[in-house]
Design a protein around this nucleic acid. Structure first.
Length: 262
DNA sequence: ATGCCCCCGGTTCGGGGA
């Protein structure tokens, strides 16, 4: 069995204790991280090595940043998503010795800043990014490359993936254009590892730090693991590690994981 | 239900997150 997880850690350096506890407790083989908010120079490679994991990092100062942790060494394939620009660290594709690709992705949020509520440039970037991601998925599928694509997609795919859909009307997390972009990826032929086995409504991976959201269970499902067809055939189990949201100094996201037969 | 929180850089606040 191989366990693969994705987790938006919301600043890896400030989350080391929780990350270590979670790795020890759940023992994933491969972990996709998002929002590490560190450069390669400042990334805590040594501490993570001490936890038993190698790390490949596409870093950036202050913002974004993605990584893949693994017990067995992996090798890099792409450090940027083709067609999405190279300014922001939101994509890292690596592969194992068997040729399976592992992709950690952090899709842009897409909402305007509070100071410029009419600004649509961030939404346009999100849609461009998702279109480029669709292209990459289609290429991998056409090549019959086995892969796991996981990350924070920043999309509320269905009204029942959020505590109150009405409150988020017009939000870039669930605009029709954004949902359509996600559906194009899903309908290209990948399998949602969590949803295939757990279709129930109000299953969340994110609870805002504000509003007492965790205590009131005001959450959203934003994190996804997509499997290529050959990998999906090996899916044994999946879930969310929501317990970490209740621990000290947590990320606002929790890990989503799947278990694959060898 | 957007203000509430949290992190970063680098200073005592602004930007970003969702």
């Amino acid at each position: 069995m191989k366990k693969i997880a994705t987790w938006n850690v919301a600043s890896v350096r400030s989350r080391m204790e929780g990350l270590g506890n979670w790795l020890t407790k759940t023992a994933p083989d491969i972990v996709f991280l998002q929002e590490v908010k560190a450069t390669e120079e400042s990334f805590p490679f040594l501490e993570i090595k001490g936890m038993g994991y190698n790390a490949l990092v596409r870093g950036q100062k202050s913002y974004n940043g993605v990584a893949v942790l693994s017990k067995e060494p992996l090798e890099p394939v792409l450090e940027n998503l083709p067609g999405a620009g190279e300014e922001e660290a939101r994509y890292l594709e690596v592969k194992d010795a068997a040729g399976v690709h592992y992709i950690s992705v952090y899709v842009p949020n897409g909402n305007p800043s509070e100071k410029n509520p009419q600004d649509t440039s961030k939404l346009e970037y999100k849609l461009r990014f998702m279109a480029a991601l669709l292209e990459r998925v289609q290429t991998l599928l056409a090549d019959r490359t086995p892969f796991v694509l996981g990350g924070d997609f920043n999309v509320i795919a269905r009204d029942t993936d959020v505590y109150n859909a009405k409150a988020y009307e017009g939000n870039a997390l669930m605009l029709p254009s954004v949902r359509e972009a996600l559906r194009k990826i899903e309908y290209s032929g990948v399998t949602n590892a969590l949803r295939l086995l757990h279709p129930e409504p109000f299953l969340y991976s994110f609870w805002d730090y504000r509003f007492g959201a965790w205590e009131k269970n005001m959450g959203m499902l934003l994190d996804i693991l997509y499997l290529s067809p050959a990998v999906a055939d090996k899916l044994e189990a999946s879930g969310t590690d929501s317990f970490v949201r209740g621990e000290a100094n947590p990320s606002d996201h929790v890990p989503v994981w799947c278990l694959l037969r060898e």
